[in-house]
């Protein structure tokens, strides 16, 4: 579907999930929806529905209580999909690294494509991250990654063998 891929980069629908961060990133996501930054210029919408989303925006270190929800959201999204980890906590836990109820970063649970650094990232950084995610998303779609099955290693990491 080469023709359709042309339009791909203009309509990223976002699913946002906070996995135990401090709200700072979530405030910035709300600010990005608002008039000054207005992410809808790029066609991005906050859908809040995994089944219709293309980009999973994860904020925060993954707490043990949130882990399963995050995994389920990732699996519910239809391919092609991109995961964006936002904020320092997403990168290996940040200030919360090695606390007893924290899983140290998003990539311990699901594969991550784009990292947005900062505590909390500026909305401009967030927009940049989304643009970066769109590039990866396009590449994934061209490679028809969604036609392939997940690799065995990834299935093991996601822990869906017995689901």
């Amino acid at each position: 579907m080469g023709f359709f891929s042309k339009f791909r980069k203009k309509s990223p629908w976002i699913l946002h999930y906070n996995t135990g961060g401090c709200n700072g990133c979530d405030i910035e996501i709300l600010a990005t929806l608002a008039p000054k930054y207005d992410i809808e210029r790029f066609g991005a919408l906050n859908r809040g529905n995994p089944k219709q989303a293309d980009i999973l925006l994860v904020t925060g270190p993954v707490t043990k209580n949130c882990r399963d929800v995050l995994r389920r959201l990732y699996l519910e999204m239809p391919e092609p999909k991109v995961v964006v980890a936002m904020g320092a906590c997403g990168h290996g836990g940040g200030v919360f690294r090695h606390l007893y109820n924290v899983e140290n970063g998003v990539d311990n649970i699901i594969p991550v494509d784009v990292w947005i650094p900062g505590c909390a990232p500026n909305p401009r950084a967030l927009i940049d991250g989304i643009v970066e995610a769109i590039k990866i998303w396009e590449k994934k779609s061209k490679d028809k990654e969604y036609m392939k099955n997940h690799s065995k290693e990834m299935i093991k990491n996601l822990g869906v063998n017995d689901d």
Binding site: N18, G20, T63, N65, C66, F96, L99, Y100, N101, V102
Partner: peptide, 24 residues
């Protein structure tokens, strides 16, 4: 309400000195 529990009270008395606890 427990989804966000990270264990900050524990970390504040074990992993951080009193000068740095504020950042946590």
């Amino acid at each position: 309400v427990g989804y966000v529990h990270r264990g900050i009270e524990k970390a504040a008395i074990t992993k951080f000195e009193f000068t740095n606890v504020s950042y946590l």
